[in-house]
Amino acid sequence: MTAFILLRILQAIPVMLVVSLVSFLMFAHVGDPVAIMLGQDHTPEQREALVRDLGLDQPVLVQYWRFLGNAIAGDFGLSYRLSRPVAELIAERAPATLELAFTAAALALLVGVPMGVYTGLYRNSWISRLFLTFSLIGVSLPTFLIGILLILVFSVWLGWLPSFGRGETVQIGWWTTGFLTWSGIKALILPAITLGLFQLTLIMRLVRAEMLEVLRTDYIRFARARGLSNRAVHFGHALRNTLVPVITIAGLQLGAIIAFAIVTETVFQWPGMGLLFIQSVGAADIPVMAAYLLLIAAVFVTINLVVDLLYYAVDPRLRADRGAAGAGGR
C-alpha cells in the first residue's frame, strides 16, 4: 500500500513540473513583459534596470528555478491588467468558484443517484422514459445554452431569480460566503443548475446502467430467494455495489465541473476564478493565466491521486493486479 501511494505521488511530480515549465515559458517569453510593464515611453536605461530587477538577464534555468520557488511560496507577481498581486486576486475569487462547484456537485449527486436508482428499478415506467429523455437533452445542450435558457425563463419571463452576480455575501475571515443570505442562495440556484445538469445526467445514466447490471447477478437472485424485502435488496445489496464506479466518475467529474465553471461564470457574471481567467485571456494577462494554469493542474493531479487511492482502498481486487503491473510501469 505504502509503495503504491509513493509511486502515484512520484508519478504526479513530473506532471506538475511539465505544467510549471509551460506556465514559466508563457510567463517569460509570451509577448514582452518588460514593454507591457513600462508602457509606451521609456528610455533604454529604464528598460535595462527593469530587466535586471526582474532577473531576465540571467540564464533560463536560474529564472525557472526562481519561478518555481516563488510559485511554491504563492507569489505569482502582479497582474498586468489590474496591477495587483495575482495570489490576492485568486484568493479573493476562490470562494465564489468553490461554493458554486460544491453546490453543483451536491445537486448532481443528490438528484442524479435517486433518479438513476429509480430508472434502473422501474425501467419501463413512463417516469423513467421522461427522465431518460430529459437526460438526453442535458447531454446535448451546451452549458452556455442551458444557462441562457434558464435566464430567459426564470429571470426574464418569470422574474423569480436573479441572473447575474452572487447577491449579498457575508465575510467570514478571508472567505466570503453566499450561503448565509437569502439573496445569496437565490443567486446560486440558476448557476448551480447550469453547471450541475450535465454531471447530473451523467451520474443518472451511470447509476441506471450499473443497477441494471447488478440486478441481474446471482447474489441479488439469492438475496431475493432468502426472502429479503425489496428495500433491503435494492438499497442494501444492489445500490451499494454500484457505488464504486459512481464515486470514481463523480470524483473525476469534479475537474470537469471546475473547467466548465469558466463558462457558467461567464454566462452569469459570477465573480469567481473562471471569470477572472477569461478576462485575463482577453487582455493577455499572462501572470494570471500562468497562476490559474498551475492551480488547475494542482487540483487535477490531486483529484486523480485521491480517486486512484480511493479505488485502491475500496476494491480489494485491484491490489493484487496493481502489485504485479505496477513494477512494469502502468
Partner: peptide, 22 residues
C-alpha cells in the same frame, strides 16, 4: 496521458490564449 487528465475544452482555451498572446 497528461493531456487526457484535463478536459479538452480547458486545453483548447489555454492553447488558444497562449497562441493569441504570443
Amino acid at each position: 496521458d497528461v493531456q487526457l487528465t484535463f478536459p479538452s475544452i480547458l486545453v483548447a482555451l489555454l492553447v488558444n490564449g497562449v497562441v493569441q498572446a504570443s
